[in-house]
Design a protein around this nucleic acid. Structure first.
Lengths: 212, 212
DNA sequence: GTCTATAAACCGATAGAC
DNA sequence: GTCTATCGGTTTATAGAC
């Protein structure tokens, strides 16, 4: 039964991509050779070119599909009412989604510079689109007076950077559970942007005085 | 006067390191060849080995010196009294120091994985030492009841990740000045960890009741 | 679909002339 | 201190047998 050659296009294709993902994440795109990827899959280097036109496309496809997954998953997420709850939903979603895909996340911000210009721009647009969905929540909260944010764009980037940081230390069997980590980050994000109660009171006081 | 060879040890050495820094930051350690570095300096590849035993040492020295600079600069920074002011001092210091050295910061977290194990561990210890100086501030604030932090270690990492994020978008001639950016981040960090006023009042209330 | 073999170029590092 | 030349090995990608 065992044979060395045969038709495995539908199986080998995904395996090539999985091996590339693992190796790029572990050693970096530039440091990984096509021969290493082939060895990981169990084929010869030449066979890889049946599944990708070149090494660059292998990287770009991995990054593009990851970003598309993020966008689709967030679009499918059920959104509660009100910016405060939406911010919690976003932070929890972001942390959970990213911790479930450590390798994709890692290469998504480590290997961007190895992309050719056009590929880089395509990825950057998708990333900006995702950031905009958080900024929209902050803007709404700002308009409704429940958030007190100095600059929504800057705050968006600061929050996402903070949330991304979790991927660099979290271990699934560490001392903190996933939901516990979600809660802590979500609380910090909320405290960082929410209108303080004393400011809210002052605002209402002034509004009342103006109404007299 | 012009001659092609001569004694330039004291000049060429730093130029090699500067070229390596620039190229590693721009293209990544693994993607940069010794020949490229030599070309940037204006010497032949062989001449580089007068200034570094090998490529790995070139990277390690850059990273180690950067971390040492961070530690020295923070040690030299004048510290105000009280955790609240110290947190502001730390956030402003961190942002300013890192924005002044974008290339060093970039390679310091992008190229860690290209270090051999011993070199990596040495760097990691220095990084942890720096993190500890922030965690000490949070712990003191927690003990004094002015901070309300769930987990000082996790919060330390979250704050540093947030602050580091600034290096990925800040442009010196952008719409926000450096001191403005410092203020916004410092405010966010403060709000994220400070004991809320209502909680503080409740705490004092309970303390008063217990004293009866 | 996978293999072997190979082209053409590049790599890090060293030797030895000047 | 810098050069040229080179060793021994690697790289991406392709050609052609099976």
């Amino acid at each position: 039964m065992a044979r060395k050659t045969g038709s495995h296009s539908d199986i080998t294709g995904p395996r090539v991509r999985a091996a590339a993902l693992r190796l790029f994440a572990a050693h970096g795109f530039a440091a990984v050779s096509m021969r290493q990827i082939a060895a990981e899959v169990g084929v010869q280097a030449g066979a890889l070119y049946l599944y990708t036109p070149d090494k660059q496309s292998l990287l770009f496809d991995l990054l593009r599909e990851h970003m598309q997954e993020v966008l689709d998953a967030w679009a499918a997420e059920e959104k509660p009412d009100g910016p405060i709850n939406q911010l919690e939903t976003f932070t929890r979603f972001h942390i959970r989604f990213h911790l479930e895909r450590p390798e994709q996340v890692f290469i998504s911000y480590m290997e961007l510079r190895n992309l050719e210009q056009d590929n880089f721009k395509a990825l950057e647009n998708m990333r900006r689109q995702y950031e905009n969905s958080l900024e929209a929540i902050l803007k709404r909260g700002q308009d409704e007076g429940v958030f007190d944010v100095d600059d929504t764009k800057l705050t968006t980037l600061a929050l996402i950077a903070m949330l991304n940081g979790v991927t660099s230390w979290y271990k699934p069997d560490g001392r903190l559970s996933l939901s516990r980590v979600e809660t802590i980050y979500s609380d910090m994000a909320g405290k960082a942007v929410r209108m303080p109660r004393w400011k809210e009171r002052q605002r209402k006081l002034e509004a009342g005085r103006a109404a007299e």
